[in-house]
């Protein structure tokens, strides 16, 4: 065991950091893109009505295929992994942002209009805050998924915990596989908890029992 860590310790530490970096940057970028897209789509229901199904379907393209295709265009650069992960991470957040905004009850919007709020004020003061729990559920889902999707980046030689998993699988070394898998699982749980914690911090008490 000591021998194992002497051999792989440094590599594992580096892999965890790379993995984490992929997840955090791609989810952060995805959140921004998804929020903007989600808000825009919610303003034009006519377009959203056919866009959302298309987005849902594209989400079912296996990650491996997508990373492979991007690899052909962008080469073996971290940007490939980042782009692929970010695009995947957009879907759950976008879907939830859209659903969250659409789910804001008409009475609140009418009350806000009746108070003389502009559409922009209604969006920022009422709709987005009320959609927050749903949006956060999307961010959480994206984060957890991205941790596992990021394992795939090793497939195109871009490091992360996937390296252990692939090397272990290809050399039939289960210790190595588990060494990659367990930190990934822990990372997924920890990041999920982190998102929950942030959500709890920024959600006003009045909204807390509404949705999780």
């Amino acid at each position: 065991m000591t021998h194992f860590f002497e051999t792989y310790g440094l590599m594992l530490g580096k892999a965890i950091l790379v993995h984490l970096a992929y997840v955090l940057t791609s989810v952060a970028a995805a959140t921004v893109v998804a929020l903007v897209l989600g808000v825009l789509l919610s303003r034009v229901p006519a377009i959203a009505r056919w866009m959302m199904p298309v987005i849902s379907i594209s989400q079912t393209i296996p990650g491996i295929v997508f990373i492979g295709i991007l690899y052909l265009y962008l080469g073996m650069e971290p940007i490939t992994a980042f782009t692929a992960l970010a695009i995947y991470a957009v879907f759950p957040i976008l879907k939830n942002t859209y659903a969250g905004l659409l789910g804001v009850e008409e009475k609140y919007k009418e009350a806000a209009r009746g108070c003389g709020m502009s559409p922009r004020q209604i969006l920022f003061k009422i709709e987005l805050p009320l959609a927050m729990p749903t949006i956060f559920a999307g961010i959480r889902m994206s984060t957890v998924y991205t941790v596992s999707w990021a394992v795939l980046t090793a497939m195109i030689g871009l490091g992360g915990l996937g390296e252990f998993v692939y090397r272990g699988v290809s050399t039939n070394n289960s210790t190595l596989t588990i060494t990659g898998a367990i930190p990934a699982a822990i990372m997924a749980i920890a990041l999920g908890a982190l998102v929950d914690w942030i959500q709890k911090k920024i959600t006003p008490r009045g909204l807390q029992e509404v949705k999780s």
Binding site: Y108, E110, A111, A112, C115, G116, S118, L130, P204, L207
Partner: peptide, 28 residues
């Protein structure tokens, strides 16, 4: 919008903003 800011409005479904306190709701 200016018109509505100068006409009070109460709806049946009450429509207090759940993300705001009583004080914040009153001072919208």
């Amino acid at each position: 919008e200016q018109l509505r800011q100068h006409i009070g409005y109460v709806i049946q479904q009450i429509g207090l903003f759940p993300n705001m306190t009583v004080e914040q709701n009153i001072t919208v």
